[in-house]
Amino acid sequence: MQLINRLKGKRRSVDDLIFDTINVIFMILLVIVMLYPLLNTVAISLNASTDTVKGGIRLIPRVFTWYNYEHVFTEATIMRSAVTSVLRTVIGTGLGVMASAMVAYTISRPHFFLKKFVTIAFVLTMYMNAGLIPTYLLHRDLNLIGSFWVYILPTLIGVFNIIVIRSFIEGLPETLFESARMDGAGEFTQFFKIALPLSLPVIATVSLFVAVGQWNQWFDVFIYNSSIPELSTLQYELMKVLSNSNAAFGSGAGAASQFANAQGGVVDVVTPQSVRAAMTVVVSVPIIMVYPFLQKYFVKGLTIGGVKG
């Protein structure tokens, strides 16, 4: 009997070992699949474009150069669009998160008599979308086309963000608010002095969501402001480079060196492929540097919001 048990135990651990090994191998493959495209892009961005055209760049640059980045950072249109990108991200996130937090606070108050009405009014819009054309006409009537504010106002508040923040505030001990009320604090004081400071983890999460959304947006630039270079953004510029090199789709090399440098030389030439690689790295690095630090928070926020939403 003992022997049988021992044998069973052993067989199970062998099964377990096989399972674990396959699982770990699978995870390593997954990591490679996730990382390779980006690492390859980094390598291409650091390789001389005339050499990249020959192909074969994988993870390590063959002819190392900073020139692609120099080109990206000295191009006036790119620098100007970087400013717009930063502005829309900072302003959009600041205003958007503040607005969402305020609405979330009001509907987290059990005694607020419009609690249900406000909640339903917001949640309904998650599934009710007027569509591209009516929205476009509205923005035209509001004189938002050709303006910076078309990036900020229409997407000011995200319903999902409200739900995430509300759930968090509802989880704060009500006694805190009660004692503040005893001391004569109004709703604004309670919001700014209690709810907001105590909700910092969720505010950080929502800020990340909003900031990423703003930073990565290109469609509103394309629809509303494509003819105004001052209001272009990095993602839109990258999108233009992408569709240019896609003109010869499939052939990523797109040998035509559109941006041949005046100095000539072998290295001082950039191809759309190299510009695209450098720009991809430039637009992606800020987010990639930030999100791991907020991981703990956004996993929590997403769980609350996703399940309740």
Binding site: M34, V212, Q235, L238, M239, S284
Partner: peptide, 11 residues
Amino acid sequence: SYMPHFLSWVV
């Protein structure tokens, strides 16, 4: 595995 979620569709 979360990383690609933060990249834009353009990228």
